[in-house]
Structures are given as structure tokens and as C-alpha cells.
Amino acid sequence: MTTASVSGAADFDFLHGSWRVSHQRLAARLKGSTDWVRFGGTMTAKPILGGCGNFDENVIELPQGTYQACTVRLFNPEQGRWSIYWIDGRDPKLDQPVHGTFSDGVGTFFGEDTFEGRPIRIRFLWSQIKANSARWEQAFSVDSGATWEANWIMEFTRV
């Protein structure tokens, strides 16, 4: 059995290639803000490890200045799930991963981390996946997932 034949191993194949990214991020996270900051960016993704994962490079054009970041996604065929690791160019290290799967065209991924010194639960949602577009959303929870605050949305358009 090859990794490509394991259910779920090709879930992120839609992401391979080059994209323009329209970002929206809450001005202040976990503070009750409803003000969104909008900015642009680009992303290029490619498969790695013979299809067991993928890697993307991002240019994020925040109003305060542009920076680079990347993502490593790895599929574990034994567990049938993905692990996603973010690397922010402003503080280059692997962030805590989120883990999950796709069901009915939506990818849902959860992880544990801290934000401004307090423990949080993180959720990533991949949705609205089409040949030339996709949507990603990040949300934080301070109550173990009982409630969520969406705080970053990326709308992808294929270049």
C-alpha cells in the first residue's frame, strides 16, 4: 500500500500551485474586537515526501510591514490524519501543530497553544474548496472549545 492510496492522503492536493491571498484579521484577538484589518499576500505550495505532505511559502503584506512564513503539512497514514505546522518568519520556529481530517469537503484541525500568555485551543477550517479558490479560517477558544472566536480568514485565488 502506498501513501497515495490511503484515504485522506490527497486531501491537500488542491493547494499545490501559486495563489493570491486576501487576508482579514481581527485588529485585536480575544478582546471582543469586531474590527477587521484587510491586507494581501501570496502563497505557493508543493508536494513533499512523495505525497506524504506538502510545503508552502507565504508572503504576508501586513499594514505594518511584509513578512514571510511557511507551512509544513504531514499526513500520517496509520492515523489517517494531517498535522499542520506553521513557521512565522518573524520568529522562526515550528509552532505547535494542529491535527485533523477532511469530511464532506471541509478540513477541520485542532491544537493547543498559548496566546499572550494564556492557554488556548486553536481551530483551522479549510472550506469552499474549488479548482481555483479556497478558504481558510483560524479561530481561538479560551474555554476548551465551547465557544470560538474566528480571528483570521484567508481567501485563496489561484494565479
Rank of each mutant, 00 (worst) to 15 (best):
M1Y: 08
S5A: 12
S7Y: 09
S7Q: 10
A9H: 05
A10Y: 06
A10P: 05
L15Q: 11
H16A: 10
R20L: 02
V21K: 04
S22F: 10
H23W: 08
A27N: 14
L30T: 07
L30V: 04
L30H: 05
G32H: 03
D35G: 02
R38V: 13
G41M: 10
G41D: 07
T42Y: 03
M43Y: 12
T44P: 04
A45H: 06
A45C: 08
A45G: 11
K46S: 11
K46V: 15
K46A: 13
L49H: 05
G50Y: 11
G51M: 06
G51D: 02
F55Y: 12
E61H: 09
E61Y: 02
E61P: 05
L62W: 13
L62H: 12
P63Y: 14
P63I: 04
Y67L: 13
Q68W: 12
A69T: 04
C70N: 15
T71I: 04
L74G: 05
F75I: 01
G80P: 08
R81V: 09
Y85T: 13
I87S: 07
R90I: 03
P92R: 14
P92G: 10
P92I: 11
L94Q: 07
D95M: 11
Q96D: 14
P97K: 15
P97H: 09
G100N: 00
G100D: 01
G100R: 02
T101S: 08
F102G: 00
D104V: 02
V106W: 00
G107S: 08
G107T: 02
T108H: 09
F109L: 01
F110C: 01
G111H: 03
G111S: 04
E112P: 15
E116I: 09
I120Y: 02
I120R: 09
I122K: 14
R123M: 07
R123F: 02
F124T: 11
L125E: 02
S127Y: 13
A131F: 00
A131M: 15
N132T: 12
S133F: 00
A134P: 00
Q138L: 13
A139H: 11
V142T: 09
V142N: 01
T147V: 05
T147G: 01
N151L: 04
M154H: 12
M154A: 14
M154I: 09
M154T: 06
M154N: 08
M154F: 01
F156V: 03
